[in-house]
């Protein structure tokens, strides 16, 4: 756990500073004392866990859908190179649509239930995944491909021994970046009318001007985003030891 000292110390410093300045009456009322926000969570553990689980469920479902679709699309593009540009452009176009505008339109189209929220989460996180996979599948250089040719490797063996391992660093970069996007997508979708979820808590708190609860929902969003990113970073550091070792080599 190297390198955690400084971030922890600086976070503690900011919290203490906010607490002190708020108590001294130096901060506006929209910035509550951190203790007040944490007290909200302490008093209402069910509020935190229920809504976090709902958002996490939606985000995970969307993430898995996006992973499946982008993997299929990039595998198709890798096999049929003619489709490469089309797949890329489609992913980019979908990514460029503002989620906040698309959500009500999609709600009219497919209704406002869980499928809508999963779809929005999937749309929000698909592009970094797609870029990672598309770049990754082209990561093996021509020399390495020539080597597999000289060894008369089958297509399956070329994938297994060269193309997939070469793709992994790019794929992991995409998966890491996509994780917080899935959480943010799920929360945005919850604004379109969900009875549970961090997004629902956020919206209710905003309308009832419950400042501490708004901040709590922001805090929970950050924790979920950073946490899902961290899970992939951890998986990466275990699976790609060679890459990290090569990057840190003198």
């Amino acid at each position: 756990m190297r390198g955690w000292g400084l971030p922890l110390v600086s976070a503690a410093f900011v919290l203490i500073l906010a607490e002190a300045t708020q108590r001294a009456g130096l901060l506006p009322s929209v910035v509550p004392a951190p203790s007040l926000v944490l007290l909200q969570a302490w008093d209402n553990p069910a509020l935190v866990s229920n809504n976090c689980l709902a958002t996490l469920g939606t985000a995970t479902a969307g993430y898995v859908v996006a992973m499946t679709v982008t993997f299929a699309a990039s595998a198709l593009a890798a096999m049929l190179y003619r489709l490469y540009g089309a797949v890329y452009n489609l992913g980019l176009t979908l990514h460029a649509i503002p989620v906040i505008a698309a959500t009500p339109l999609l709600a009219i189209l497919i209704g406002g239930g869980p499928p809508l929220r999963v779809l929005i989460a999937a749309l929000s996180c698909q592009f970094p995944m797609l870029v990672g996979m598309m770049q990754g599948m082209r990561a093996a250089d021509s020399r390495q491909r020539e080597l597999m040719h000289v060894l008369a490797a089958s297509r399956a063996d070329t994938w297994r021994y060269l193309l997939l391992p070469a793709a992994l660093p790019f794929v992991f970069a995409g998966l890491k970046i996509a994780a917080p996007s899935a959480i943010l997508g799920a929360i945005t979708a919850e604004w379109a009318g969900a009875d549970r979820g961090v997004g629902a808590v956020m919206l209710n708190a905003l309308f009832s001007f419950d400042v501490a609860k708004v901040w709590l929902s922001v805090l929970l969003t950050c924790i979920l985003s950073a946490g899902t990113y961290g899970i992939w970073a951890l998986a990466e550091s275990h699976l790609l030891r060679w890459k990290i070792s090569a990057e840190n080599f003198p």
């Binding site: 020399r143 390495q144 020539e146 080597l147 000289v150 021994y161 060269l162 391992p165 790609l240 060679w242 890459k243 090569a246």
Partner: peptide, 14 residues
């Protein structure tokens, strides 16, 4: 029946 050594070692880094 052919072994090839390229200009660059072309080892798989992983």
């Amino acid at each position: 029946a052919i072994g090839v050594v390229f200009q660059a070692p072309t080892l798989l880094p992983w």
